[in-house]
Each structure stands twice: as structure tokens, then as C-alpha cells.
Computed example of a mutant assay.
Amino acid sequence: MDVPATPSLLAARAPLIGVTRAGHRIVAVGLRGDIVYSDDEGRTWAQAKVPVSTDLVAVSFPDAKRGWAVGHGGVVIHTDDGGATWVKQVDGRRLSELAVNYYKQMLGDSSSVEVKRAFRDAKALASDGSSEALLDVFFESEKRGFIVGTFNRIFRTEDGGKTWIPWMERTGNPDDFHFYSVHGDGERILLTGEHGMVWKLNRAKGIFEPRPTPYKGTLFGSLESGNDVVVYGMRGSLFQSSDGCATWKKVEVPNRAGITGGVVLADGAFLLVNQAGIALLSRDGGNSFETVKLARPMSYFGAGGFADGNVALVGADGVVVETVPQFSHSATHSVN
């Protein structure tokens, strides 16, 4: 958490886990603090200057210049120049202190069960010196964003990461399930996690409300387009909703490998990728998916940054930029 990432000519071909766009620039993050970026659709890559060498797993840019990345050790790093140079804003040690002090001040005879549980959990995590991993980050604007991670860890900022407010008492997550993703589309922000759980932000109340799926395994992420939402995860698990996440329908896919990432295309179509190197495309709101062929398949860890017909994909072999293909017409898999 305190050692800068090592420069490497092979950083763009090392395992990378998260990817997005900062304007027209593609930015990807991965193991040992590696961050690479490209201004020419992946033909060439440069390595960013990063103040940590812990594994980074997710990245978010609300505009072309300002971005945040998170990872193991609870690190949060920030850039103001489109991802070329980064500074550390906070890490798990400081977040643990913040959580303990925040909930200690809230304690009292009238404290809710949720606040008391959040204080107990924060104190336990801080006492053993653990720095819980952060697994995702989402900024809806240059000021407002969320970071989420293991054991119900979730923090909110309203000032671009200068300060972080614990939200652990606002999640309806008494079992302290891990949060694997936080993702938004306009007014809707969703969390996904263990035990097939989905949580939807109620902005009026300032809480995340449970919207569980029938699945009991881990969900890695969500995609939203209009009224349509899909959530995806382990063993090819895929569920679709068109009623505000009130009900979920299982969608069959041709491969049981874990679905690890996805992106919404310009026309609202969903593109998903999995650990077996397979891409799935839906143009009907996630009700059915077809296998599509990619030029350079690998074991995928994430997808993002659609623009001008191209999408950036990251995985075991680094980062590649692919032209979004048409349906292969090899198979159609529909909602049950």
C-alpha cells in the first residue's frame, strides 16, 4: 500500500482486471498496481505512475480527466489527468479508523440495530489490523461516488474522495455479504454480491434495499439499459429484470464459466464476457443472448469503455480492443 508500482514494458500484457474509458482514452488496471492507458484504440500503451503496488481491481471515470481506482488493502487512488498519474487518497487502515469513529459517535440508547451492528463489525475489523479489500468503485459525477468491498464495506463521498462516509448501516445486509460491484445508470444504482443478492439505492431514504435473485451463489456485476437490468456471476448465472428489480428471470447461456464483466453498447445492447473466453450479446434487453466471435479471445476478467464500435476487454493476457461483432447465429438462449 505504500510502495509504488514497478515500471514494466509488459504491463499491458500482464493480467488486468478492470477497464473503462476516460473520454477517448482507455484505462486498464490490474495486479501489482499496474495501470496502462491508450490514446489510439489499443495500438500502443503507456504505463501510468501509480503510488501503490497492491492489486487493483476496478476503475471509474465520471469524465475525461477525473478517475478513481480501488483494490486490495482498501486502497483508493485518484487521477486528475486522465489516468497518467495517480495519488493515494485513502487505504484500508484509514477507512477502518473512519468507520470506528463514525459509528462510535452515532451510538446511544436510541441507536438502531443497524448502527450497533456496524459499530461492532467496524471495531472487530480494526482491532485485528485487517485492511479489507475494496472490489469496486462507481462515480456518478466528479464529486459523488461509492466504494464497496468485502464484509459489507461501503463508503460514500460527496466531495470527490476528500472525505468518505461509512454507509454500512444503510445496506440491509445483516449477514455482512461481500459486495462485488456497484454500478449505476442515471438515477438507478445497484450493488451485487454473495448469495445471489442485489441491492437497489432508494435515493429518497438514502439506503440500499435488498432485491434478491433466486440464485444462491455470487453475482459479480450488473448492467442497466432503460427499464432492463441484467445481473451475472458464477457458473454462468444470469438473471434479467424489467420491473425495477422487483422480480428476476433466469436466462440460460451456452457455457457454465463465470460471467465476469459486461458493457452496454451505444444502442442499449448488452455484451457480456466470461472466464472461458466467450462473449455473449443481447439486443432484446437481456431476454436472450447469442454467442459472438471475438478476434483475440482469452480468459476475461472485465469489459468496458465502448466507443465508436470498439470495446476494451481485460483478462489473463492483459488488455485488448475488439470491434463489436454481429451475432454468430450459432445459438439462442432465452429466459426461462
Rank of each mutant, 00 (worst) to 15 (best):
K104P: 04
S110Q: 13
G160P: 13
G172A: 01
Q326S: 14
L31A: 00
G71K: 06
H78M: 02
N287H: 15
A84R: 13
S222D: 00
G145N: 03
T192G: 11
E132S: 04
E41G: 01
H72A: 12
E224V: 15
K205P: 00
A5E: 08
S299W: 00
D228R: 14
D176V: 01
L95V: 00
K143L: 10
D81Y: 11
E187F: 07
R256D: 12
L201G: 05
G83E: 06
V148P: 09
V264P: 02
H333R: 14
R156M: 11
D80W: 02
E252S: 15
D63A: 11
V19L: 04
V182K: 05
K205R: 15
F177V: 08
C245K: 13
L265W: 10
S299T: 11
I165E: 14
P210Y: 05
P212Q: 05
V229S: 00
L272V: 09
G261C: 05
H333V: 07
I259A: 06
H72P: 14
V198C: 03
W167C: 02
L219W: 06
K250G: 03
D284I: 11
I154W: 00
E209M: 12
K104M: 05
G160A: 11
K65I: 00
T332S: 14
G108E: 07
G261D: 05
A246N: 13
F179T: 07
G196Q: 09
L134E: 01
H78G: 01
Y215M: 03
G129P: 10
T20A: 12
D39S: 14
A331F: 01
T44K: 06
F61D: 10
V148D: 08
K249Q: 14
N310V: 06
R120Q: 13
Q47M: 14
E97M: 07
T157H: 12
H333I: 04
N152K: 14
D267Q: 08
E194W: 08
G318K: 02
A64L: 06
S110C: 05
L107A: 09
V253S: 03
Y215V: 06
A22D: 09
L201Q: 13
A246Q: 15
E290S: 12
G23H: 07
A99F: 01
N274S: 10
D308C: 02
R235Y: 02
E142F: 02
P212H: 03
D63R: 05
D228N: 14
I207D: 08
G318M: 06
V36T: 04
F208M: 10
V76E: 02
L95C: 04
V137A: 13
V87H: 04
V335R: 12
A99N: 10
N173V: 03
G73Y: 12
V321T: 10
G149I: 05
G18S: 08
L265H: 06
S299M: 05
V113C: 00
R21F: 07
A295T: 10
V182Q: 04
M168S: 09
V253K: 00
D228H: 15
A204W: 09
F155A: 03
